[in-house]
Amino acid sequence: MSRKIILVAALGILFVMFFLSMEEMEDLFKNDAKLYFFEHGLDDTGSSNLITAILLDYRLFDSLFEAGILLVAVSGVIWISRHDFEERNAHFMLDKYKTPELFVTLSRFVFPLLLMLGFFIILNGHLTPGGGFQGGAVVATAILLLYYINLERKTDISLIVAVVKFAYLGIVLTASISLITRGEIFTNFMAVDAPTMSKYIYIIALDILIGINVALCLWAIFTAFLKEGR
């Protein structure tokens, strides 16, 4: 009991510190970066969606490793979930669950719509809210609905992971083409003063690759968990 009181007191100290420092916050916020993005974002990168502009151009290095983190997570999950030797309680989770009929019917209806929405989000990342990461997650959700429609469905994880590796290498390659065309590393391979339309090529290509990467990674992770359950 005394332990919890001390814990709450310690958290209270942190809270008070935060509360007091927030008072200074009011007129402090520096918005140099925001103004820069607002003024130059469209001209620099060709993307009117500034978040996509930051993800795919200004801070592409982050996004590269964001996709890389998914690759590592997938490889790690698959490595750890592989049954190399006998475990003691491995038989406990048998799939006795049956999906309700209504859910299956609805899933059949929703599946194509969700897939379309996902592709739309991926392809229009530069104009509307969205992009590779968000659209990839939606596509992955659509694919996962297939598992509800058919519980016996079998998926070859190693094939998915092989495609993911190619997609990741594709992202790295697309990102580094600019080293040859412009002499700058990790940016749009079209020149800064190129027409906006030609800059779209790069953004859409990268968005599609990232979308593939994210969708397949989430799919593989989910399948690994399902296998663990069966």
Partner: peptide, 23 residues
């Protein structure tokens, strides 16, 4: 507009978070 940088950073954080949770 609102500041786009935190939004972009948070997409990265969400992806990292999902990777950590899965593992």
């Amino acid at each position: 507009i609102v500041d786009p940088l935190p939004h972009a950073l948070m997409i990265t954080t969400i992806v990292i978070g999902s990777a950590v949770t899965a593992l």
